[in-house]
Structure formats: C-alpha cells, structure tokens
Design a protein around this nucleic acid. Structure first.
Length: 200
DNA sequence: TCCGTTACGGTTGAA
DNA sequence: TGTTCAACCGTAACG
C-alpha cells in the first residue's frame, strides 16, 4: 500500500476512504453514529472540530514545552491537527475553531442600496420586497448583477424595521436558547462521547 | 523521527 | 421548505 502511495502522484492516489486500511477508520457507535477512530486510536467526528477540552489540552501541553509529536500521541490526535491548532493559536491567540458553514455575504446590498430600500419602505410601508427590487432596477440604483434578491431585501427590511413585534425576543431569551441548544448538542457531540474517555 | 503542508471527504449554515 | 455553495473541520500521507 505504501509502495502504491509512493509511486503515484497524490492527485492520482485512491481517495482517502479507499486509502484507509480496510476503508475508513473504524467506526464507533455513538448516539450520532458518526464517531470514527483514527490511526492513533483517538475518536473523532469527520468534519467536526475537536472538543474544546482537547484543543485546550493541546495548547496547554505545548505551553509546557511538550513536543507536538508527544501531544499528538498522548491525545491521540493527528500531528497535522496538532500543528494546525498550535499555528492558529499562535496567530489568533484563540483555541476556538473557525466559524463553520455559511456563505459569503452576497454583494449588492451596499449601505447605499440599503438606504434606498429603507426609504421606499418608509414612504410605502405596504410595498412588497419584489416591488422594491423592481424599483431599484427601474431607477437605475442597481443593475441586474448588483440588485439584491427578494429574500435579501426582506431580510434587510426585517433587520431595519424589526419584523413583527410578537416575533421579537430579547437577547437574554436568545442567549438562554443558545445555551440550551449547545448543551443539547454537547450531549450528542464528540465532546459528550469523549467526555469520560479523555481523562488525561 | 519530527513536523509543515496538502488533498480529501465530510459537516455546517447563510443565501 | 429544500437546495446550493463556500468555509471550515480532522485525517492520512508526502516530503
């Protein structure tokens, strides 16, 4: 296998899934059914960040002068990952993973356009998003490429005019919800799975 | 043996 | 409501 890997360009190599001995690493039964075991015997969820306590441990050990290869072996995290986390920590001073998901804010709703949308809505509160969009085009404020989508316009309107009052929730309430959600997720996440495994 | 880098499959969430 | 797509994840392997 290693001979194969060494003899062909990386791009020509079999996919990772095929590359792993016997397919993807051992699967571990978890509430989500997503846990996998890496070559070091560590459990991870493909595509998801390592739990915070592991990340913290990595940084802490590095602080104490422990070498990355030792950290990797002790925590059963690939050395590439250890290296990545330490690099990020050096650059940003944070052990937290980056924001996963989402897409780039679409170009178009510049502050100027937003101001026009606001104006239209203020003058004609009954105006629909698609009407606003039409008007932006008609008045030459935007062209076909730069005009915001109908949903973008309604989002802008929601943020500017607050939408329905009964839908408004105060921040405390939102925070509480967020906390509950994260707790709920933690129970089903790798963190929960590893919680008692990683006594290190 | 160590470690930086990279291709890869996977997850996530805003648009 | 469902789909798309870009950003991120950790892994294994290369050099």
């Amino acid at each position: 296998m290693s001979a194969l890997a060494g003899s062909i360009p990386r791009m020509m190599r079999p996919t990772l899934a095929q590359n792993y001995r016997g397919g993807f690493p051992l699967e571990v039964s978890t509430p989500l059914g997503q846990g996998r075991v890496n070559q070091l015997g560590g459990v991870f969820i493909n595509g998801r960040p390592l739990p915070n306590h592991i990340r913290h441990k990595i940084v802490e050990m590095a602080h104490h002068g422990v070498r990355p290869c030792v950290i990797s072996r002790q925590l059963r995290v690939s050395h590439g990952c250890v290296s990545k986390i330490l690099c990020r920590y050096q650059e940003t001073g944070s052990i937290r993973p980056g924001a996963i998901g989402g897409s780039k804010p679409k170009q178009g709703a510049t502050p100027d356009i937003e101001k026009h949308i606001e104006d239209y809505k203020r003058h004609s509160p009954a105006m629909f998003s698609w009407e606003i969009r039409d008007r932006l085009l008609k008045e030459g404020i935007c062209d076909r490429n730069t005009v915001p989508s109908v949903s973008a316009i309604s989002r802008i309107l929601r943020s500017k005019f607050g939408g329905k009052c009964d839908e408004e929730e105060d921040e405390e309430e939102l925070e509480k919800k967020e906390l509950e959600e994260s707790e709920r997720r933690a129970k089903h996440s790798i963190e929960g799975i590893l919680g008692d495994r990683c006594e290190y």
